[in-house]
């Protein structure tokens, strides 16, 4: 029987802290704790400039996303035919639809707010880009939702949208008239992609913090700018 003896790194080009084993797990933990320490991940303070209602729209968007996912999960329990024949099902479908309307409503206001704050400044470009990706994939998710309704909307939207999608060549593999394919994209694949983008987006917000205001003091160039990011 052999006993593994942990060899602790003492130095590495990445400035390793002593006491971390050179394992994938150890390195991941070190990276995670360094970039997302608990007080950044779950903050109980904010910079004083965070004093506007515009800041609540990110949280409202997340909340609407949660309502959409939860109501969608209830719809999934009984399957796609339920909401056409039951008033309880119709009600849950209505929550799902209005949740989606609210989701886009809050997300677009959030986008306007972040644009006018130039919230990509100071190594926050990746935060902006993941936000745009979440927006675009949300549109695709909503689109497949309309296709999964099994009603006149689905027929019309599918037969109209096919021309655009076929024109890009994607229609050969992604058939908007195949209900089964669209339903699975709607309830599994696309929500997963949106969740991943939203997750990275939120973690980046926590890691980099909320963007500080423009420095309007005349001609001022701060002595210590954050390094303009290659990392972002």
């Amino acid at each position: 029987m052999s006993i593994d003896v942990e060899e602790h790194e003492t130095a590495s080009p990445h400035g390793a802290t002593p006491g971390v084993a050179p394992t994938w797990t150890g390195r991941f933990r070190r990276w995670a704790v360094r970039d997302l320490p608990p007080d950044k991940l779950l903050p109980d303070t904010q910079p004083a400039y965070v004093a506007s209602w515009i800041y609540v729209f990110g949280a409202l968007t997340l909340a609407a996303f949660a309502v959409v996912v939860l109501s969608g999960a209830v719809l999934a329990i009984k399957g796609p035919a339920w909401w056409h024949v039951s008033s309880a099902g119709l009600f849950v479908n209505s929550v799902h639809l209005w949740g989606t309307e609210l989701f886009f409503f809050f997300m677009v206001i959030h986008l306007w707010g972040k644009f006018f704050m130039a919230a990509w400044r100071g190594r926050r470009k990746a935060t902006w880009i993941t936000g745009v990706l979440a927006f675009v994939t949300s549109i695709a998710t909503a689109f497949t939702g309309y296709l999964s309704q099994q009603n006149f909307d689905s027929e019309w939207i599918g037969t109209q949208a096919k021309d655009g999608i076929n024109a890009t060549g994607a229609g050969a593999f992604w058939n908007v008239l195949d209900f089964g394919q669209m339903l699975l994209w709607h309830v599994l694949l696309l929500p997963l992609v949106v969740s991943i983008f939203v997750g990275i987006h939120v973690l980046l917000v926590r890691r980099r913090g909320v963007v500080p205001p423009f420095d309007d003091s005349a001609g001022a160039e701060p002595a210590q700018a954050e390094p303009a990011g290659t990392a972002s």
Binding site: Q46, A48, A51, S52, W53, I54, V56, I109, W112, G113
Partner: peptide, 15 residues
């Protein structure tokens, strides 16, 4: 809502 969000006063936070 966007206009209200950037104009309405936000409650003061505790230092």
């Amino acid at each position: 809502v966007f206009v209200l969000a950037i104009t309405l006063p936000f409650p003061h936070g505790r230092k």
